[in-house]
Design a protein around this nucleic acid. Sequence first.
DNA 1: TGCTAAGTTCGATTCTGTTCGTACTGTGTC
DNA 2: GACACAGTACGAACAGAATCGAACTTAGCA
Lengths: 126, 126
Amino acid sequence: MPSTTRPGPAIRTLPEPAGLPEPLPEPAVEDLRLETVLGALSDPLRLTIVRKLLLESEAFDHTCGWFGLDRPKSSLTHHFKALREAGVTRQRQYGLERRSHVRVADLEARFPGLLALVAAWTPDES
Amino acid sequence: MPSTTRPGPAIRTLPEPAGLPEPLPEPAVEDLRLETVLGALSDPLRLTIVRKLLLESEAFDHTCGWFGLDRPKSSLTHHFKALREAGVTRQRQYGLERRSHVRVADLEARFPGLLALVAAWTPDES
DNA sequence: TGCTAAGTTCGATTCTGTTCGTACTGTGTC
DNA sequence: GACACAGTACGAACAGAATCGAACTTAGCA
């Protein structure tokens, strides 16, 4: 049992820099479910996204386009939404763009070590 | 890249106690894929199975029946097979019974910390 | 004002997984 | 030998997820 189970009524956001746009709807830290997060990460494309965010950025948010994924936009919307709704990423709307970053602190608090596995992952080289 | 990528033609089994029945077909350690393992673990019933194996046994193998799962046999066969084919569990045939245990060493070698998350998991209490 | 670009929404299709009934297989026992 | 029992195999029904085209929304800009 995580000791963070009872911080009262679901807090949705974390203290982050400042004056940023509101994050799009996402599960609160204490509502993160292992099975849901694992499900979101059980897809190579989404692993690619999260790993790229972990390794090649972490400065700050990135747009869909930044990833250079060769898929139609509607497919990307789908996957980014899946990641966000599982609680893996946080998305913010900056004008036209929707930028994402990994909820490192939240995930590390609830599932320590999980992100390290994602960072160490390599796509199937077959 | 895992450094264990080229031990020649896939070795299928590990040195275990002795004179045990051959394990049913399973992926070799170096063929374990994160996305596949996560997919296998993204199901509450299978998380229950693996967690129970980790916490309440680890002495040695257990039959399907031992888990006391309230599902038809054909469903259980399906889930146990999914776990085995993903490389999470190893199964051996003992006469009539098919017994399972978690491939702790293999998983720990490839995905360190993952099993700890499963052990810490609790079913949705809603 | 009207274009362009980022991304969404919707809906259709396809794929994959789950669930489970029924029939089957093989071992041990009386 | 015949029965019970653990578990599989097969196949159908269903559910949910992936994929993606097409039409839409909206901010910024010329």
